[in-house]
């Protein structure tokens, strides 16, 4: 070895390789840790949404592991257990979203609401961008989407628009900063992009908490319409006092990868009476929820409590991992 090192050419070659490797590593690190503007969720809702949900899945969230596990199960199951799968697994873990927001907007005179989703990949966007074309074709089918430039962002939209029947009907998308926006209505997404701040001004997507938060506004009667529709359809009294509910706030914090704890707060602007029918309605809702979740392998325990402004259903859900697998399975069945 000593003799070999005495060979000047070899010595400089090895040194050169070392310098090259270190430089590549530094470049990779600079690239990976370099700034990418996070999605500014506050700038996405142009109107007050009737439903707003946030699902944090950052590195500190116990949800991340579960969500990654399920995605692996779905996407990598055909890869066997070789090196290819290992690399794909590492890639998935690095590129997995850190936060997802969902919004539902209602407009007067419009039959269907507008659904908007914002997925923030954090640093993972740098990897995601490598597979951007594949993602686009998964989203919009084999026919490449129509692309237009809006304020420096590329708005992609289906050439043939889907009739929006539900939350899964996506007609447009755009890559912004570290995230991806998806929307059922291209015109609405265009408006979002037109007012979206320049990359440098983008805010922070760091969640205020690790909890899944859902806010449903009933001031305009969004939930009341839905409930009354199903009551009519099934000739069944589901939630008679829904007109008294001003909003529902759901807050579910992960205790570990399998358990969620939190509450469903049914808020009202009218003072609650001693034996307010809303308590019985929330109790019944709890009963329905428990019985709907049980066949999916989720156990729900809890109680209904009442304060001056809200009836709260405090719950603990276990078997959450199973629940998410079931959701995946159901989605897959729906897509078939």
């Amino acid at each position: 070895m000593a003799n070999l090192l005495k060979n000047k050419t070899l010595k400089y070659t090895l040194l050169g390789i070392g310098v090259l490797l270190v430089s590549i590593l530094i470049i990779i690190l600079l690239w990976w840790f370099g700034y990418t503007p996070p999605v500014n969720f506050e700038k996405l809702a142009l109107e007050t949404p009737v439903v707003q949900a946030q699902i944090p899945s950052g590195t500190n969230s116990p949800l991340r592991g579960v969500l990654i596990g399920i995605t692996e199960e779905k996407m990598l199951s055909s890869m066997g257990s070789g090196l290819k799968r290992k690399v794909a697994q590492i890639g998935l873990r690095l590129a997995f979203p850190v936060m997802t927001h969902a919004y539902v907007f209602e407009f007067p005179g419009e039959e269907t609401p507008v659904y908007l989703y914002a997925i923030d990949f954090g640093r993972g966007i740098k990897l995601v961008r490598f597979g951007q074309d594949k993602i686009n074709s998964r989203l919009f089918g084999n026919e490449s989407p129509e692309e237009t430039q809006v304020q420096g962002y590329t708005l992609m939209q289906r050439k043939e628009q889907l009739t929006v029947k539900g939350f899964k009907d996506i007609n447009a998308g755009a890559w912004i900063g570290s995230g991806l926006l998806l929307c059922s209505d291209p015109a609405y997404l265009r408006k979002v992009l037109e007012q979206y701040p320049e990359a440098a001004e983008a805010g922070s997507s760091k969640p205020a908490s690790d909890a899944i938060q859902i806010h449903i506004d009933n001031q305009t009667g969004y939930m009341e319409k839905l409930i009354r529709y199903y009551e009519q359809k099934f000739a069944f009294e589901l939630f008679a006092s829904i007109d008294q509910v001003s909003a529902v706030d759901i807050n579910l914090a992960p205790v570990n990868g399998d358990t969620l704890k939190g509450d469903f707060a049914f808020k009202t602007q009218n003072p609650l009476q001693e034996d307010d029918p809303m308590v019985s309605d929330v109790d019944f809702f709890y009963g329905v929820l428990r019985r709907t979740l049980r066949p999916q392998g989720i156990e729900m325990s809890g109680e209904t409590v009442k304060d001056a402004e809200a009836v709260k259903l405090q719950v603990e859900l276990t078997g959450f991992r199973t629940a998410l697998s079931q959701i995946e399975k159901l989605t897959a069945e729906d897509n078939q």
Binding site: E231, A235, F236, E237, L238, S280, D283, F284, G287
Partner: peptide, 10 residues
């Protein structure tokens, strides 16, 4: 409760 809700509607 479910029976009550089914039949109160009727």
């Amino acid at each position: 409760e479910a029976i009550r809700r089914k039949f109160s509607h009727a």
